[in-house]
Amino acid sequence: MGRITLDQVTKSFGEVNVIPPLDLTIEDGEFVVFVGPSGCGKSTLLRLIAGLEDVSSGQIRIDGEDATDKRPADRGLAMVFQSYALYPHMSVRKNIAFPMKMAGVPEDEQKRRIDGAAAALNLTDYLDRRPGQLSGGQRQRVAIGRAIVREPQAFLFDEPLSNLDAALRVGMRLEISELHKRLATTMIYVTHDQVEAMTMADKIVVLRAGYIEQVGTPLELYRTPRNRFVAGFIGSPRMNFIEGETAAAKGAFAVGVRPEHIAASTESGTWQGKVGVAEHLGSDTFLHVHDTGLADVLTVRVDGELPVRHGDRIFLTPEEDKIHRFDAEGHRL
């Protein structure tokens, strides 16, 4: 159905080489998330798959069939854009019907699919409105509806939630995940929000400057990051990195330990430092600990009720078996 294979795909804009040779396989029905810092080529990669950009070299296969030179419409993919890209002069109904109209789907079939999509996405009451009269979340749903009715082999999402407020984002995140469970269609999802990546993905692809740093399930990336970049990128708050003597004692150039793998105490521990900013989330508190002699600042997750104040002395103890070790090039040891 929707197996997508990239084979030595490259892309350059003039002199600028954005994607160096890249291999990637996306299995049928998988929810794959591309993450990476801004400008690393996530959108470009997605647009290459969509056919909105031509590859400079290499091959893209969809379902085993060479799609490198196929037009976007012939690839059987549907895309949801960051700006939604709804047609402002058409009603919601016409927006959703547009791809079917272009494909020559019969009227009654069109109506059936529109009603189905509208019911699934809670859009039934808004079918006759214009996109301009909808809220951000509703527009997002229309864009998804427009993608669904095409019954594509795969959905492509380019940061679809970045224009929504936090609460709505959580809601839409769930809706998209549920949609994926229900349709079981391949989905490729671009984001730079690693919470979205961790919660939604079957498989995460971490990109940096066009290179794939690591591919794996969210927990694989969390537990065994292949290098310092992935280790720092996946997980929130960021992993703490400690260089120097402490690392050398463990036979590494640098060691990393996640904030949630450090125990804090006001009485005793391996390391000690002074409490800086404390971010209270209620359930947890993130403490920024200074003057440890290990790194500028260590972030520690502690229980929400731990009674510490700014400037207090605090003792830290890392969980030895959850310490990651890296060599000078940043590779995992």
Binding site: L52, A78, M79, A85, Y87, M102
Partner: peptide, 14 residues
């Protein structure tokens, strides 16, 4: 004109 609209239309088979 928003280029993404044209791209969306292109993907929609227009």
């Amino acid at each position: 004109l928003d280029q993404e609209q044209l791209e969306a239309a292109e993907m929609d088979g227009a």
